[in-house]
């Protein structure tokens, strides 16, 4: 088993929480893990990404070479564009459709979505809207994780356990809303590819 995952987004969008939940499951399953954290300046609004490599065999580099990622989880559509060159031909792109516009040369929405649709295996998910609909607007990152869950090669119930473990400190309510977000994301992905 081997999964090379690129997590992408903009500072403050919670990609590290996604990595933490996946990391919990990986450790629980006794798999190898390597993660490259990218630290920018301590500010919101910059592009952030993290490479996550999971395998049943030892892993050397923490960096995923171009054309080899099995999965890109991007909580922002333009950030997914930045990493599409890293995706393997059989890899999956799971991207949010909610743009985070803080630059003047942000591409037009249809140009952007057109590029995303060129990727054979993609799921474009309005994660922000779904998170709002289920009453937990701050869980859109976990909606994304739910949408990606089918492609992680990790047991879904372990992801649920990870969420309980990691958000447990913040109270039962937060756990509940994140579990809801995880399910909502998975359900959306199922209907998207159906």
């Amino acid at each position: 088993m081997k999964r090379d995952i690129i997590l992408a987004g903009v500072g403050g969008q919670g990609i590290l929480s996604i990595a933490t939940v996946i990391g919990f499951v990986v450790v629980d399953q006794g798999l190898y893990l390597k993660q490259a954290e990218v630290h920018g300046m301590s500010q919101r609004g910059g592009d952030v990404q993290s490479n996550l490599r999971i395998s049943s065999d030892p892993i050397y580099s923490d960096l995923i070479p171009a054309g080899q990622a099995d999965l890109i989880i991007s909580v922002e559509p333009m950030e997914s564009l930045r990493y599409i060159p890293f995706l393997s031909r059989t890899g999956w792109l799971i991207t949010s459709t909610a743009p985070y516009v803080n630059i003047t040369d942000y591409p037009e929405n249809d140009v952007l979505m057109n590029e995303i649709r060129k990727v054979k295996n993609h799921i474009a998910i309005p994660a922000d809207t779904i998170a709002k609909e289920i009453g937990s607007p701050r869980s859109s990152n976990i909606v994304m994780l739910g949408a990606a869950s089918a492609y992680l090669d990790l047991p879904f119930e372990k992801l649920e356990e990870g969420i309980q473990k990691i958000f447990g400190k913040k109270g039962e309510k937060i756990v509940e809303s994140n579990l809801k977000a995880l399910h909502a994301g998975r359900d959306f992905a199922k209907s998207y590819i159906a």
């Binding site: 910059g46 171009a66 054309g67 599409i84 060159p85 040369d105 591409p107 140009v111 590029e115």
Partner: peptide
Amino acid sequence: TPILPAPMAVKAPARPAQMC
């Protein structure tokens, strides 16, 4: 030679570091 994806028509512009 590695199998690389086709070059993309649109590139993501940078989000340059800026003051908060």
